[in-house]
Every structure is written in structure tokens, then in C-alpha cells.
Nucleic acid binder design. Structure first.
Length: 293
DNA sequence: CTCGGCCTGCTC
DNA sequence: GAGCAGGCCGAG
């Protein structure tokens, strides 16, 4: 569910609320979310995980790709929201917005009681998310080492993007979803970025000229910045920690618009499976530079 | 690199 | 009842 703009929006909301608070109690209800590997006694693992987390203080909150990194006084808590993960911050007993169940509900898998009368709830219908406690800087580096450049940082230069696409015969769709090529894009923003760049998702990465790559880089950054301004995309599950929806769904040009007219040329947006993911694009406005179609 | 698996819920 | 969903990982 959440891609870079949603995770960054969550980070911004939570950073001010959580900084300086101590974790007073930990209730981990679905141990596998915190398990590094499947383990026989998940329950004892959950208990010890909670014991280790309890008592630590949240110093700050960072983001890398789609990971949230809680900087603790000792170690870090790494949170990945998977497809349907949500974080909500509320006073105990406080009701979330209409349309959301009272918390905790059966999909609430972790509850952190924080000092100063605040609770942090992790909710995840499909349980694809991950929670990891990292004790050392080495562990943190290892956990994140496979990630490519942050698209909004200085390091994401045309040369860096070119490096990720060079000699690749995989379609652009697959390459941009690959977190090693660029970190933080998911299915929505890949489709949107390719539309902006005028490139077909089926085009091979290796076939792009410098001009195409530069255009693609600009498109990736542009769509992420705009989505950030609108606080992400809410199709159904995404809410920020204060239960606000994103607004970028109103500005999507191709994602979820199969059969509807392209906003640029009026021809219908097509949807097909590319790189095993539902993919939306305009056959007229987006071209494959190799085949010309 | 592509596929299947991990989960649950919603739509057709 | 089947197929699909905003993600990722490990197996072939």
C-alpha cells in the first residue's frame, strides 16, 4: 500500500508527536511480524521482543525508502508497512475518525504505550509488514544495504539512474519497482512517473538515451514531490497516523484509470500485466524508444 | 529474471 | 468462487 509519499507523510506526522517519549509497554499480538525467521516458539520470541523494546526512548524518526526508522536511545526500530500496514497515534480510548474501527481491533498487531499518555497502534490486515529491532549500527547498515538511491536526494543523479538501467533487458516497469535501482517507488508511482516521462512501461531499460533517462528522473522526482504535497494517495486503506486521507488519488493520470480517457490525448488508458503487476498507461502518449510504439 | 508464497478482504 | 490488491523475499 504505502509508497514513499505515504511513508514520508506518516513520518512527518509522527516525528513531532513521538520525539522524546519513552516506550512504557509493548503488546505484540502477532509475533511473526517481528520474527526474523519463522521460529518454533513465536510466543516466547514475542515476549522477549517486547521486553527488549520496553523502556527505550524514541529520539527521532527517519525514513529510508519505504522503511520507517525509529531512532531509540539504544538501537533502532525498523518498520515496513508492507501492503496494508497503518500506524495510528492516539490517546488511550480516543476514537479514530469515522469509517475506521475503534482501536485496538482484530487487525491491530502491535500497541506501544508511550509516556505522556499516547498510544501507537500498528494495524495490518494482510500482515505483510515487518517490525525489526536493530541493536547496532552494523545491523542497521546490513538491513538497508540493498537499497538504491533515494529519489528525492542529491545522489539520485541522471548518471545514477543510468547505472541502474544500463544493459538491462527487463521492462522499465520492473526496473523502477526494483528498490535497488531507485528506492521508494511502488506500483502507483511507477505508472505515474512513466506517464510523465512519456515512456511505455514495457520499454527495455537498456534502450534509453541520456535524454530519456534525464526525463525519467525528472518525472520520478516530480510525481513524488507532488504526491507529497497532497499527502499521499488514499485508494482505500491509506490513512496517516491522525486518520487523515491523502489527496493525490484525485490527480492520478493513469493508475486506476483503465478505460478512461487519457487526460492528454483522450484515448483510453490501457491496463495489462507487466512484470507481474497490474500496469496502466496510454499507448499514444507513452512510447518505447526502441520499437517506436 | 520470473514465479509463487505470504495474508485478508473486496469486487466481479 | 475466482481473481485481484498500494510489497517483498526466496526459490528455481
Amino acid at each position: 500500500m504505502p509508497e514513499l509519499p505515504e511513508v514520508e507523510t506518516i513520518r512527518r506526522v509522527l516525528a513531532r508527536k513521538l520525539a522524546g517519549r519513552t516506550i512504557l509497554a509493548v503488546d505484540l499480538r502477532v509475533p511473526k511480524l517481528a520474527a526474523s525467521r519463522l521460529h518454533r516458539s513465536l510466543h516466547s520470541q514475542a515476549r522477549s521482543w517486547g521486553q527488549r523494546v520496553r523502556g527505550r526512548k524514541i529520539m527521532g524518526l527517519r525514513r529510508r525508502a519505504k522503511y520507517l526508522i525509529f531512532d531509540l536511545d539504544r538501537g533502532k526500530l525498523l518498520v515496513h508497512l508492507g501492503m496494508t500496514g497503518q500506524l495510528f497515534a492516539a490517546a488511550p480510548g480516543e476514537r479514530p475518525a469515522r469509517g475506521l474501527p475503534p482501536l485496538p481491533d482484530p487487525h491491530t498487531h502491535l500497541i506501544l504505550d508511550l509516556s505522556g499518555g499516547l498510544r501507537l497502534y500498528y494495524r495490518d490486515i494482510r500482515k505483510f509488514g515487518r517490525l525489526r529491532l536493530l541493536e547496532t549500527a552494523v545491523e542497521e547498515a546490513r538491513a538497508l544495504e540493498a537499497l538504491g538511491p533515494e529519489p528525492l536526494a542529491r545522489g539520485f543523479t541522471p548518471a545514477k539512474l543510468a547505472e541502474g538501467l544500463r544493459n538491462k533487458k527487463a521492462p522499465l516497469k520492473a526496473l523502477l519497482l526494483n528498490q535497488k535501482v531507485v528506492a521508494g517507488l511502488g506500483n502507483i508511482y511507477v505508472d505515474e512517473a512513466l506517464f510523465r516521462a512519456g515512456l511505455a512501461p514495457t520499454a527495455r531499460g537498456g534502450g534509453l538515451t541520456r535524454a530519456h533517462i534525464s526525463r525519467l528522473r525528472t518525472a520520478v522526482r516530480g510525481v513524488l514531490r507532488e504526491a507529497l504535497r497532497y499527502r499521499g494517495t488514499t485508494l482505500s486503506d491509506y490513512f496517516d497516523p491522525e486518520t487523515r486521507r491523502g489527496e493525490f488519488q484525485n490527480r492520478l493520470r493513469v493508475y486506476g484509470r483503465a478505460g478512461q480517457p487519457c487526460r492528454q490525448c483522450g484515448r483510453p488508458i490501457v491496463k495489462a500485466v507487466v512484470a507481474q503487476r497490474g500496469t496502466h498507461w496510454c499507448r499514444h502518449c507513452q512510447q518505447d524508444p526502441c520499437t517506436g510504439r
